[in-house]
């Protein structure tokens, strides 16, 4: 029953996010970033935090851009490495698959701020265990290339990964690409 409720929520998000896309400047998006992943445990550990490397890729399939804002529903994939070995333990690496919504506001022609929230399921790389988590990301994005059919941004995301037993802070750098299937201005 709980599972059906979750599927219904995901379906509602998909439908809601799709509504504006039908009425204006729809776009698809893809992004990739490389981040330093700092896992702060909620349990007693040998050190206050452990370091890993994270690679994030997103594919936005329902995006809409207004005059000075945009929003997109996207699937995201993370890959987080094992932490650096220290002492008697190390944090396990994992791969993640999730859904998120990103929104951004332009502060000038070239500079905007984005915020992203989502949830994901995470699969440990070495063992067959899975866990759920939530993640939030914010940061500046700089427009570095623009044509009528695409935009390319440089992004500097700062993220929080909320796991049950660890809260992870991330800082990284990446690229975001927006593809407009209909020439902007057309209806």
């Amino acid at each position: 029953m709980k599972g059906k409720r979750l599927y219904l929520i995901v379906l509602l998000i998909l439908v809601t996010a799709g509504l504006p896309a039908a009425s204006g400047e729809q776009y698809y998006a893809a992004s990739s970033s490389l981040s330093y992943y700092l896992g702060i445990p909620h349990f007693e550990d040998e050190i206050p935090a452990r370091s890993s490397l994270a690679v994030s890729t997103t594919v936005g399939f329902l995006g809409y851009q207004g005059s000075n804002w945009e929003t997109v529903l996207q699937a995201h994939i993370y890959s987080v490495s094992d932490s650096l070995p220290f002492g008697n333990y190390r944090a396990r690496g994992f791969n993640s698959l999730g859904l998120s919504i990103l929104a951004s506001w332009s502060l000038s022609d070239r500079f905007s701020l984005f915020i992203q929230g989502g949830s994901e399921v995470n699969f440990y790389k070495q063992i067959e265990e899975v866990f759920a988590s939530f993640s939030f990301k914010l940061g500046p994005q700089f427009l570095i290339a623009e044509e009528p059919t695409y935009q390319m941004h440089l992004i500097v995301p700062l993220s929080v990964h909320l796991r049950k037993e660890i809260t992870a802070l991330q800082a990284g750098i990446g690229i975001r690409y927006l593809l407009f299937p209909f020439k902007r201005g057309d209806t």
Partner: peptide, 21 residues
Amino acid sequence: ESPSSSSWVYDNGIDDWYGKY
């Protein structure tokens, strides 16, 4: 059983994974 993650060798659904969170 881990208090924070679920084994997918056994049959667990996505609702169990979020339930554990």
